[in-house]
């Protein structure tokens, strides 16, 4: 539940979100999640994404969940991110929770 008293922090990720740079992205994400209770992830409009990033965000969701934190995308997945979601078979069989996280569908963030 987004509570208005929780400060929302925004992490703007770099353009390269492929396996080549993913180790650094993981570090940034971990540091960021550590110091905030409600995290918003902002993706560049023309960022490059591959499956390692999708996997990383899924791992981040699990992490946030266990730590009782909130994590969300600033905007529904689009462009390269959406394309990878489709091609990798993530869109098939998404739960309501997944749809909400990735596509902002089925409820207000």
């Amino acid at each position: 539940m987004p509570a208005s008293d929780v400060k929302e922090d925004c992490l703007r990720l770099p353009q390269n979100l492929t396996v080549r740079a993913i180790t650094i992205v993981q570090q940034e994400m971990l540091q960021f999640l550590d110091k905030t209770a409600s995290a918003t992830i902002e993706l560049d409009d023309d960022c490059q994404v591959d499956i390692s990033f999708i996997q990383l965000l899924e791992a981040a969701r699990i992490y946030a969940d266990t730590a009782g934190k909130h994590i969300a995308l600033a905007r529904p997945a689009s462009g390269s991110t959406l394309d990878v979601l489709k091609r990798s078979g993530f869109l098939e069989g998404m739960s309501a929770e997944d749809l909400k996280f990735w596509l902002h569908q089925g409820g207000i963030q």
């Binding site: 180790t23 996997q55 699990i62 992490y63």
Partner: peptide, 27 residues
């Protein structure tokens, strides 16, 4: 073709080796 990703093996972020692949597929 219908492809579904299985992500049940993805660990929590702090345990993730980000360049390893944890996803498997059913097609």
């Amino acid at each position: 073709c219908k492809i579904v990703a299985n992500r049940s093996a993805i660990p929590s972020l702090e345990l993730l080796a980000p360049t390893d692949l944890y996803i498997s597929w059913e097609v």
